[in-house]
Design a protein around this nucleic acid. Sequence first.
DNA 1: ACGACAGACTT
DNA 2: AAGTACATGAAG
Length: 462
Amino acid sequence: MAIIQDRKKCERARKARDARFDGVFFIAVKTTNIYCRPICPAGPPLEKNVEYHDSAISAASAGYRPCLRCRPDSAPLSSAWRGTQTSFHRGLELIHQGALQTGSIQDLAERLGISDRYLRELFEKNLGTSPKKYAIYQQCLFAKQLLHESALSITQVAYSAGFNSVRRFNEAMQQQLSLSPRQIRKSDKIVAGKLKLKLYYRPPYAWQHCLDFLQHRVIAGLEWSDTMSYSRTIRHADAKGYFTLQNNAKHNHLELMVHLDDYTSLNPVTQRIRAIFDVDAPVAEIDTQLARQLAGQIDYLPGLRIPGIWDSFEAGVRAILGQQVSVRQAISLVTKFVEELGDEIHVDGLGVKKLFPAPETVVEYSLDFFRMPQSRKDTIRRLAEHYLSDENPDDIDRWIDIKGIGPWTINYVKIRASKDPDVWLAGDAGINNAIKKLSAEPNIEQTKPWRSYLTFQLWNQL
DNA sequence: ACGACAGACTT
DNA sequence: AAGTACATGAAG
C-alpha cells in the first residue's frame, strides 16, 4: 500500500520536476536515506537508488528523513484516500483535531463507533502505521514547521506541537525525522514577532472567490476583513484567540497569523484552518472532472475552494437563522445573536471583538431579543441542547431528529463545516436558478465525488 | 476475555 | 559562578 509499484510515471514526473505531482508521491533515496518531493531542486538521484512512496509518512516510517531543501513535510497533502473510507477519514480528521493529544485510542475508536482493533487495522491498511504513530508523526511535522517559521523557543515548540514533556519531544523528533530540533532550527534564520505560518497549496487557488464569499457574509464583531485578508475570532477546547489569513499567490501558500491564549491548541487550530480554507483540495482532479461535465455551459472558475465555517455548531446556527429570509436579513440576525450572547475578547490594535456563543451559553439565556418566529428560536435551543447531551454532536446525520432541522440544513452544514466534498444541495433556490440558465441539465451523478464543488461553481454563476 | 509484555510517556 | 538552552540517561 505504501510503496508505489508503477515507477514509470513517477520517474518521468520527477525528472521533469513536475509540480502537478507535488504531494502525490515522494522519492526515497536509498543511498542517502533521505526522501524528497518531485520538485526538489537537488540533482535527481539514479533511478536504481530510489523508491517511490505514496505518502510522506510511509517514507518516514521506512526510515528515511525529510530532505532539508525541498521540505517534503510541507508539501500539500496527498489525497489518494479522500472521499473513501469514512471511518478512516474521520479518524484522520479527529487526530488532526487533537483527539489523541489528550484522549486514548479507545476514546477515539468509540467516537467513531468502531472497535480500537479495527481502527488500528484501518490505519495499518491505509498508512502502514498505527493511529498513535500517525498522531506523533503529525505533531513532529508541525513542530518542524514551527522550528522553521516561528521564533518560539524549542521548549515552546514542544508544547505548542502537543507534547507534554520536552524529553519526549526530542525523542520523537529523532525517531520520526532523524533530526534533533536544534539541527532543524539551525538551518533557518527566523524573525521574531507575531506568529506567522505558511500553509502550502497546489495551485491554482481562487482566493478572490473565497474572500468575496466570506466578505459578503461577514458578521461584525466576530469577523473582519480588508481587500487582501480575512480575520475572525476562534475558540478551540479551552483556548480562545483569533487569526488572519491572506494569500501569497507567488509562493503558493496562504499566510496565517494566529493568536491564542493557550498554545497547546496551536496544532489542532492550524489544521482546522487548513481544512476550512480547503488548502489540501486536489483541485487538478476536481477541475478536470467538473470542467468536462460543464463544458461551455458555465463560466467555470478553476481552483475554487469551498470556504468553511469554524465549527458545526456555528454552521448550524447560521443555517437556521438563514431559513426563510434573505442573506442580508440572515446576517443581521447572526450579528445580533453574537452581539447579545458572545463572550468578549481583546484583539491587539482593534479593541474588543466577540467570540461565537457556545452551546452552553445559548441554553442558559433566553432568545427574547430576537424578532423572529418562536419555532426558529426553539430550533436553535434544541440544537444547543443536542450539543450538550449528545456524545458525538458532530455527526451531522443525526441532526435529522432535531425538530426544525431538515435535509437542506444538514447538507449545508456538511459542506461548510464537515467539509464533505460530495454533497449536492438539492432543492436550493440558488442552485435551481443557476440550473435554469444552463442550456442542458447537467448530469449530477457524473460529478461524483465532487458534488459540493459543483454546488459552489453553480452558486458562483449567480 | 485475559494476562504478559513492549514501549510510550513523565519526572 | 550562576543562569539559560538543549539533549539524554535512568527510573517508574
